[in-house]
Simulated assay, not measured.
Amino acid sequence: MASEKFWANADRDDITTCPYNDEVEEWLKKQGFSQRQAKAGATIIRPEWAPPGRRSGK
């Protein structure tokens, strides 16, 4: 669900369409994940084509 919610409309040619990790983590925590699980989950669902490194903060 998180992958579809956050990455379905992301454009590999436009980094501004990629979600911030903080957003993904917060959403996962609201779904019942612990902080650690949410952080890992945000990384796991990140597509291989997404720019490297954590995009966090706004």
Score class of each variant (00 low, 15 high):
V24Y: 00
A50C: 10
R36S: 15
A42M: 01
P47L: 06
M1H: 12
A8K: 15
D11L: 07
G57F: 01
Y20T: 14
E26G: 02
A40T: 10
I44S: 09
D13F: 05
W7G: 05
A8L: 13
R12F: 03
S34Y: 00
P51L: 08
Q35S: 14
A50R: 07
E23S: 15
T17R: 02
D22W: 11
P47M: 06
A40S: 12
R36T: 13
P51E: 02
E4L: 14
T16H: 01
G53R: 00
Q31V: 06
A40N: 11
D14N: 14
K29H: 01
K58V: 12
N9F: 02
K58F: 12
A2V: 11
G57K: 05
D22V: 08
R55T: 03
A10K: 01
S3P: 03
D13T: 03
Q35K: 15
A8H: 10
E4K: 15
I44M: 12
K5R: 14
K29R: 15
R55Y: 06
E48H: 09
P52Y: 08
T17K: 01
K5L: 11
S3M: 10
D13M: 07
C18Y: 06
Q35L: 12
G32W: 08
A42S: 11
W7Q: 05
Q35N: 14
G32K: 05
A10V: 01
I15T: 09
